[in-house]
Computed example of a mutant assay.
Amino acid sequence: MELSELRIFMAVVREGGITRAAERLNRVQSNVTTRIRQLEERLETRLFDRRGKKLVLTAAGQTLLDYADRLLALAAEAEAALADDKPRGVFRLGAMESTAAIRLPEPLARYSRLYPEVTMEMRTGNPAQLANALLAGEIEAAFVAEPVAEARFDSVPAFVEEPVIVTSQDHPPIGKTKRVPDTMIVFEQGCPHRRRLEAWYAQRGSLPERTVELGSYHAMLGCVSAGMGAALVPRSVISTFPEGTRLRITTLPKGQNRIRTLMIWPKDSRSPKVEALRELLATD
């Protein structure tokens, strides 16, 4: 469907007939009639019934009316956004779970105060999922742990995390006994913290007997504090866990104890909303 056809369709609905719609659109009646007939042929359904001199929407026409109204409003919003570099509209962001929970609330609150015409939406996932969502156009920017595919995305550093190994307080210190828990508690495949924990086990010549996948850091920390196994989490997450005193923290060697979180977006597609967030993060 073309937007011009939808505009003609909407005019006929609002004006109640072809004649008044043609006058409003500054078109001849035959042109309006032809365009409506072409639209019906394309959709393979009748949109209007004639009752005397009046056109009445069919059930299919009423369905199209709902969509046409939204499509034309969205098109107008897009035109306004392209003509104006002020951030506005829906801003669809993606982030890893820890970043969304710990790092983003404060900067996004400031962003909302600065740009009240922007409505924020958030999706969480691992870096691979968020990268795919960016390439599919489902989100506009994402916060992921490095590394990223430089050929596909532009990026700026956003935060630096310190990953640490956590076990229960009852577990012997790993650095002294070199004994590691038999169970590894992780997110699903694709999580950078899972990869780092798997590498840590491998470097110690150990393989976990069991791997437990969970969906949130607090669930992971709860299982760790109960003595179920070991997890690798950003240190910033631990401060939000009420039972933090029941955890034993083991730091990673230098060179492995820092992970940068980057804000990424598709190459050459920076929008006013993304640019405004990039500038806000640069002032922190």
Rank of each mutant, 00 (worst) to 15 (best):
M220W: 09
V156H: 15
A151C: 10
I165C: 12
D182P: 03
N257V: 04
I174A: 06
G227Q: 09
Y111D: 09
M1W: 00
A131H: 03
D85K: 14
V164I: 14
C223L: 05
M228G: 13
T250C: 00
D154G: 06
M10P: 02
I238N: 04
E77P: 01
T211Y: 05
C191P: 05
T251S: 10
F48I: 01
V212G: 13
L252Y: 02
S225R: 15
E2M: 11
E106T: 10
E106R: 12
H193T: 00
R210S: 11
G94M: 04
A133M: 13
A276P: 13
T250M: 00
P242A: 14
L43M: 15
S271M: 07
I139T: 01
R248W: 04
L3D: 08
Q203Y: 12
E23C: 03
Q38S: 13
T63D: 04
T63G: 09
R51S: 03
R24M: 14
T124L: 02
H218W: 05
A231K: 08
S30N: 07
D66N: 13
D268L: 05
E23V: 09
E138A: 07
S168D: 09
L108W: 06
L197P: 12
I36W: 07
D69H: 11
K273A: 14
R246I: 00
E2Q: 14
L221G: 03
G137M: 01
A226F: 11
V56L: 13
V166E: 11
A60N: 06
L108H: 12
L43C: 13
L281M: 15
R258G: 02
A199V: 08
A231C: 13
R70H: 07
F153A: 10
D284R: 10
V233N: 07
A109Q: 12
L43F: 12
R260G: 03
F153Q: 07
P266L: 00
A60Y: 01
R194V: 09
P208D: 10
I165W: 11
S269I: 03
T245Q: 14
R152P: 03
L64E: 01
E188W: 01
A11V: 07
A59G: 02
M96Y: 13
R110N: 06
R46A: 02
V166P: 11
R50A: 10
G52A: 07
M96T: 15
T45S: 10
P105T: 09
L43Q: 10
V90G: 02
R7T: 06
R260L: 02
T245R: 13
P266V: 00
P242M: 11
A136H: 01
E44G: 10
P172C: 05
Q38C: 07
N126I: 05
H171Y: 13
E2I: 08
Q38V: 10
D182W: 01
P172I: 06
P116K: 07
S225A: 15
S236T: 09
Q38A: 13
S239D: 12
E117H: 09
P157C: 14
Q129C: 00
P105V: 10
H193F: 05
A59V: 02
G89V: 01
E146C: 12
D84Y: 09
G61P: 01
L262W: 08
E243I: 01
